[in-house]
């Protein structure tokens, strides 16, 4: 094997490897974590976060505008503090609300943001004033059963009269 041929094949090999990596980077994967200089942090307190996970998406009108950075329990008030990294292109007014939603019936949970109408915008580190927690399926079912049972009792007492 001549020197020039080895150089040629090794060069081709390097190009093919780089092309494979480029294919994996551009076509197969995406960057889901935002760069620090392109994001700002917002905080929201929830009574119950259900099954929300770190790296869960934050959506506004269905568009992904950020990711959950960290979740912790506030030891004073016993509420969950959710830190969110928001895309710096999107700003929200101070009376916007955050709620935990589920995509589909059994899908992953995400935070939905409903924008408000205030002139002043949320700055980095600010907290959402209005939040609503995740719906826990067990509580929903038990509430339904209790109301059904109460309704049933009422029916029977009415029948007794």
């Amino acid at each position: 094997m001549k020197r020039g041929m080895i150089d040629f094949w090794v060069g081709l090999f390097a190009v093919a490897g780089a092309a494979a990596l480029l294919f994996l980077a551009l076509k197969v994967s995406s960057q889901s974590t935002l760069a620090v200089n392109q994001s700002y942090e917002l905080v929201a307190n929830f009574d119950n976060i259900g099954g929300l996970k770190v790296r869960a998406p934050i959506k506004s009108a269905g568009v992904v505008v950020g990711r959950v950075n960290a979740i912790e329990l506030d030891p004073q008030r016993y509420v969950a503090r959710v830190h969110m990294a928001m895309d710096a292109r999107y700003q929200y007014s101070r009376d916007s609300s955050a709620e935990i939603l589920t995509s589909g019936l059994l899908g992953e949970q995400y935070i939905g943001i409903t924008p408000g109408a205030d002139d002043k915008m949320l700055k980095s580190g600010d907290t959402f004033k209005i939040t609503s927690s995740a719906i826990v399926l067990e509580q929903l079912i038990s509430r339904f059963l209790f109301s059904k049972a109460e309704g049933g009792n009422k029916d029977s007492t009415e029948a007794g009269k």
């Binding site: 990596l21 076509k27 197969v28 994967s29 960057q31 974590t33």
Partner: peptide
């Protein structure tokens, strides 16, 4: 096929 793949695979974490 491609868009679900792209949404689920993270460049830094997976690739």
């Amino acid at each position: 096929f491609w868009s679900q793949m792209q949404a689920a695979v993270d460049f830094r974490l997976d690739v």
